[in-house]
Every structure is written in structure tokens, then in C-alpha cells.
């Protein structure tokens, strides 16, 4: 994929929600709470600009805090993957 490093300023853009890599303990707790295997989570590409800026590795879980028009703040999680699941 593209080789350049994404511009850090995208993190400040108002349309880019807050991303955070969960710690190992947090990730385990989350999976236990939801009762799922990591691969049952929605996924995010390793090549996603924000993922690259966060220096996340495949297998990391990213927490995304999104502002929802109906639900206030909505928290979503994404599993970082090198290859996306085929449709």
C-alpha cells in the first residue's frame, strides 16, 4: 500500500472520531463481556490511516468513540487485521 506516513492532523479533524488502542487487559475484559472471539468483532484495516498513526498491530482492538446523532456518544470496537474478511 501507500508508503508515506499519514498526516497527524487527521486526528484533529472533526469527522474523525477518537480512536484508542485497548491494553491487553482491557481487550480480554471486553471479549469476556461480549462473549466473543476476537474474529467475531468488526474489523479495521491495518492500512487505515488512523490505525497507522496509532501504530496498532494486527490483533489489537481499537476503541472508537463516535458522536451519534441519536445516541449521544457511542462506543464501537474494531479488530485490527492485515487482510480484510472476504464478503
Amino acid at each position: 500500500m501507500s508508503s508515506g506516513v499519514p498526516d497527524r492532523r487527521i486526528l484533529e479533524h472533526e469527522l474523525v472520531p477518537e480512536h484508542r488502542v485497548l491494553s491487553f487487559e482491557e481487550a480480554i475484559a471486553l471479549l469476556r463481556k461480549l462473549g466473543v472471539k476476537p474474529w467475531q468483532l468488526p474489523q479495521i484495516s491495518l492500512n487505515d490511516p488512523v490505525v497507522r498513526l496509532l501504530n496498532a498491530k494486527p490483533g489489537d482492538i481499537i476503541e472508537i468513540k463516535r458522536r451519534s446523532p441519536t445516541g449521544g456518544v457511542h462506543i464501537a470496537y474494531r479488530l485490527v487485521v492485515a487482510y480484510e474478511r472476504r464478503a
Binding site: L41, S68, H74, I75
Partner: peptide, 15 residues
């Protein structure tokens, strides 16, 4: 039906 998560809260607000 495989238990994969599609949304963490129905409609993002659970309503």
C-alpha cells in the same frame, strides 16, 4: 447468525 457483532448497541442508542 454466527454470533459476529454487527453493532455494539442496536441503532447506536438501543431504542
Amino acid at each position: 447468525s454466527w454470533g459476529n457483532i454487527i453493532q455494539f448497541k442496536y441503532g447506536e442508542d438501543g431504542v
